[in-house]
Design a protein around this nucleic acid. Structure first.
Lengths: 210, 210
DNA sequence: TTATTTATCCATCAAACGATTGAATCACAG
DNA sequence: CTGTGATTCAATCGTTTGATGGATAAATAA
């Protein structure tokens, strides 16, 4: 009950927590190799050695960030699950998209970091990929697409991945996509929800009917 | 008719071309900051200075890679456009997904690099983002979702982005997703096509009916 | 009080990185 | 052959980066 990470989370004003928050954001923006410990330290307003004192090495800090992100996302999944419990599939999707999108637009570094881990490799031999959380099966179950989180068929896993990826893409790619569609931020958020629902709801509800 | 890049492409066995090919792959895997000029040089089997002799600096090489990737993708878009011309929307989507997916699975570095540019920032102030090709409007037109590539409505742009992103995600994230669904490569490719069609065809064809 | 632990910064190191220089090698026209 | 430009490599430079040691101060315990 007192891992370093949990300890840091307890007091959000502690130096450990402040470093972790900044690290989440910067690792999310620039990736592992694009981020330097000096960038994080400078943003926090401390010396590099203070960062090392609290979190060990760069890789250790990065791992903590990944774990922290996943913890937040898992908690959000539980929230969503409660909100959609018992509703028909179409509404479940509708509400899930709204809640998840709102949350991620407020914490874009979550989407950023997840996509970085999906699509980028890390030079260092040390296996950061040891921590591969299996949200996908959980989501499949909570969406009602699978009965238990064990033995979810590949087809269902792929469909859930498609939905999650679509959300992360629009969040994380805002800086790239929003100038393309030439709308302000508020309109963009509305467009993202609208598009996600347009794309995904027909597929799943049609499937339900057959 | 004789930019350095075109010159390199003319003779695929030239040193310039060999460097460019390797750079495409490695930049795609590790991103800009995750790639070192030494990694590329070693993979080609040459000295670093030879790389610099042909391509200038690291940033110059990266820019050439981005341009090269976009050139290939634009050509592929033309191929697809010809193949689907005149067909109904459902079939256009079906064929587009098949062709694009097959192509990108053979050249995953294309998807890798595009996603890196979408979701990651580059530390260097030098504006690499000057080169932002506008495929999206072209795709919207060739899919028959817009009449001309000017004034494509934001809603349509977003839908096209959703389709393109979904494809790139499954290609580029294969190393991450395939172990999750526990299938071999051949089955994964089939699943990707199947899933993409399941998700996207109902949305667009239903929309067409209304 | 004094002693000890905790936390922070300054200075600095070794390794890695991007880049350059100058010499060596090769292709080939004269 | 010979000379000339294009190409390649070995050696190295200056900088950045991750990381550490030691001094210092603040907090805490004895």
């Amino acid at each position: 009950m007192s891992t370093p990470l949990e300890k840091a989370r307890k007091d959000p004003e502690s130096m450990k927590a402040r470093i972790l928050d900044v690290a989440r954001r910067i690792f999310g923006e620039y990736g592992f190799h694009g981020t330097t410990t000096r960038m994080i330290a400078q943003e926090v307003g401390i010396d590099i050695s203070t960062l090392h004192y609290h979190w060990g090495g760069k890789k250790d800090l990065y791992e903590s960030v990944v774990i922290d992100i996943n913890k937040d996302l898992r908690q959000k999944l539980i929230d969503v699950e409660q909100a959609i419990h018992g509703l028909p599939l179409g509404e479940r999707l509708d509400i899930s998209i709204d809640m998840t999108t709102d949350y991620l637009f407020e914490h874009p570094e979550v989407s950023n970091l997840i996509l970085f881990r999906y699509f980028g490799k890390t030079r260092s031999a040390g296996n950061l990929d040891a921590i591969i959380p299996e949200f996908t099966a959980d989501i499949a179950r909570s969406m009602g697409l699978a009965l238990d989180k064990k033995n979810v068929p590949p087809e269902t896993m792929m469909k859930v991945l498609a939905v999650m990826n679509a959300i992360h893409n629009f969040i994380s790619g805002e800086n790239f996509f929003r100038p393309m569609v030439k709308v302000d931020r508020e309109r963009y958020i509305a467009l993202v929800k609208e598009t996600l629902k347009f794309i995904h709801i027909p597929a799943f509800t049609q499937n339900e009917a057959t």
